[in-house]
């Protein structure tokens, strides 16, 4: 059901549209079962960045105080894009992997289920 409004029209741009990012995109990524870091992270990045470069140089360093962060092997990751199973090519770029503005990526790493195995 559409919004009810007074007047002739009700039409506004999305506050988070890709046009507001000067060629970059926003990407949302969570390493599941590492909940001492409470929420998925937000990144503003160029779409031609290689996915592996992002994981190794940007994403992994965001979990500095987690004992699992030294052990992670992203090639063993089990991936989801928009909560659907997905198999990225880590050596291709975001764009080549179909990662668009505001994509939500989750990864689990079998064997690394957080401290005490309870997702911490």
């Amino acid at each position: 059901m559409p919004v009810k409004f007074v007047g002739d029209s009700y039409d506004f741009p999305c506050a988070n549209q890709v046009e507001n990012y000067g060629g970059d995109i926003n990407v949302y990524v969570v390493w599941d079962h590492h909940l001492i870091y409470c929420a998925p992270n937000t990144y503003r990045l160029p779409p031609d960045m290689k996915f592996r470069d992002f994981l190794e140089q940007v994403f992994a360093p965001d979990y500095p105080q987690h004992p699992d962060s030294d052990k992670v092997d992203w090639d063993q990751g089990v991936w989801q894009l928009e909560n659907e199973p997905w198999e990225p090519d880590l050596d291709k770029s975001f764009a080549e992997n179909g990662i668009a503005h505001n994509s939500f990526i989750r990864v689990t790493t079998p064997g690394l289920e957080g401290m005490h195995g309870v997702g911490n």
Binding site: P13, C14, N16, Q17, V18, Y28, V30, D32, H33, L35, A39, P40, E82, N83, A100, H101, N102, S103, F104, R106, G114, V118, G119
Partner: peptide, 18 residues
């Protein structure tokens, strides 16, 4: 599942919202 973040997506005007 209290061990997994819940993040749902809706698309409107070509922009995804979480």
């Amino acid at each position: 599942d209290p061990l997994m973040n819940c993040c749902l997506v809706s698309e409107y005007k070509g922009t995804k919202h979480q």
